[in-house]
Structures are given as C-alpha cells and as structure tokens.
C-alpha cells in the first residue's frame, strides 16, 4: 500500500473518531435524560420515556440512519450535514439502550439511601442529584463501556450512506487495489485497537469514579450482556 492510501485510512480513522465522540456525547445525554425520566413520579413522563426507549431500541440502527438521511430532509425541508445526521441517528438509537442502563443503575441503589433523602426532606431533584446519581454512576460504567464498543461498531454503518469513515476508506482502497484481504485485515485491526483503547479508558474512569464513593472496581468479568431487550411499553419502574 502506498502512503497516499494510508493517508486515506488515517482520514477514515479521524472521521470515525469524530463520529464516535459526538454520538457518544449525544447518547450519554439521551441516556441520562430518558433514564431519569423513567423514574419520574408522573406516569405520563414515565410512559413517554418508556415509549421512546421501546421505539428506538426496537428498530435497527441502520434503518434509523436511512430514515434520518432520506426521510427527514423532504419531511422537514432541511438537510443535515452527513456527520450530524450520523450523530443524530446513532446517538438516539444507542441513547435508548443507555437509558436502560441508567434506569437499572438508579433502581439498584440501596432503597435506604432514597428513604434517607426523603427523611431529610430533600426535593426529588436533590435526591437524584446528591444521593442517587453519585452512587449509581460508577455502577453504570462497565455496561456503558460495552455499549461504547457497540457504538464504535455502529459507526461503521454510516459508510453505507457514503460518509468517509474507516470502513468507507477500506472500500475505496479495495476498489483502488483490486485486492481485499490485506486492506480489510488492516481495517479490522484498527477497529480492534480503538475498541481496546476505549475499554482501557473506561476501566480507568470506573476506578476513579468508584474511588470517589469509596469503593473498589469490580473484578473483570467476561460476561458482557448486550442490553436486555425485555421491557414493556409503559415505562413502569420495575
């Protein structure tokens, strides 16, 4: 492979990382807003949050990407830059998975902590901000780490829409060289290295956050359940 082709690969890596950072930020925001909304005391808020989760988790990320690229522009009369369209589709889809993580971690905080907050007459918002979230967030990091890897794998989907990410550069180089084994091996290895680095970063973050609430990280487990898919519309807190 010539240096020009390697430049193409590097550009692809850059686009993939941009997309990963932007969509993971959006997904995190969506996860927390929707996840916290699912513990709200008004049923309509819980219902809407649960409905959002079911819809965006129920459909395929690729279908969502197609929808954002092809249906939104004629429907609303404006078109997004590909990078933002990709960010929107991936962020909303993976945010729905993330909201389940947030909801589960909040529900897993010792009930006595919640009762303590009530006894001290904290407002619900104070309880969430000062008591529940500081304890729940460190527990969310391992599942979020797995979700981040899923999101990294999801970013490859935008190449189908012609966005110049890593997988797309791979396709261009295959066409240029008429030879697939080598380039696809490199592309797969680059994805694997990015995933490995992300896992390391998330483990560092977990350690730091757990030290903040006086706990030690859970020992590494290989079991990485993809987010469970068995909740009902309705958003009742289970």
């Amino acid at each position: 492979m010539t240096s020009g082709l390697w430049e193409l690969v590097l550009h692809g890596v850059w686009v993939t990382i941009q997309l990963l950072v932007l969509s993971s930020l959006l997904a995190t925001a969506v996860s927390f807003v929707v996840g916290v909304a699912r513990t709200h005391r008004l049923w309509i808020v819980r219902f809407l949050a649960g409905f959002y989760t079911e819809v965006f988790r129920g459909t395929s990320a690729l279908v969502m990407i197609f929808w954002v690229f092809f249906v939104l522009p004629p429907a609303f009369g404006w078109q997004l830059v590909p990078l933002w369209a990709g960010t929107l589709a991936l962020g909303l889809t993976y945010g729905a998975y993330g909201s389940e993580i947030v909801r589960g971690a909040i529900a897993a905080v010792d009930p006595a902590q919640r009762e303590g907050g009530i006894a001290l007459s904290f407002t619900p918002w104070q309880r969430m901000k000062l008591i529940l979230l500081p304890q729940a967030v460190p527990e969310m990091i391992p599942p979020f780490s797995n979700l981040l890897i899923e999101l990294l794998k999801g970013t490859a989907l935008v190449s189908i829409m012609g966005m110049g990410d890593l997988a797309f550069s791979g396709n261009l180089i295959r066409l240029a060289l008429q030879e697939s084994a080598e380039i696809y091996t490199y592309i797969l290895i680059i994805y694997f290295v990015i995933a490995f680095l992300l896992t390391r970063i998330m483990r560092g973050l977990e350690k730091k956050l757990k030290a903040g609430v006086g706990r030690t990280p859970t020992p590494k487990t290989d079991v990485e359940p993809k987010p469970a898919e068995t909740t009902n519309v309705g958003g009742a807190v289970r």
């Binding site: 794998k153 490859a156 997988a167 030879e179 697939s180 084994a181 696809y184 592309i187």
Partner: peptide, 22 residues
C-alpha cells in the same frame, strides 16, 4: 475477542470480497 470487538459490517465485506479471491 477480535470478532466481537470489530464491526460486523467490515466482517461482511471481508468475507464477501476476500473469500472469492481465495
């Protein structure tokens, strides 16, 4: 571990374009 942490899409391309070369 490698298969799990790399995108299915690229794996599809790999199998679809590389296997015929072999």
């Amino acid at each position: 571990e490698f298969v799990r942490n790399t995108p299915l899409l690229v794996q599809l391309f790999f199998l679809f374009y590389v296997l015929p070369e072999w």
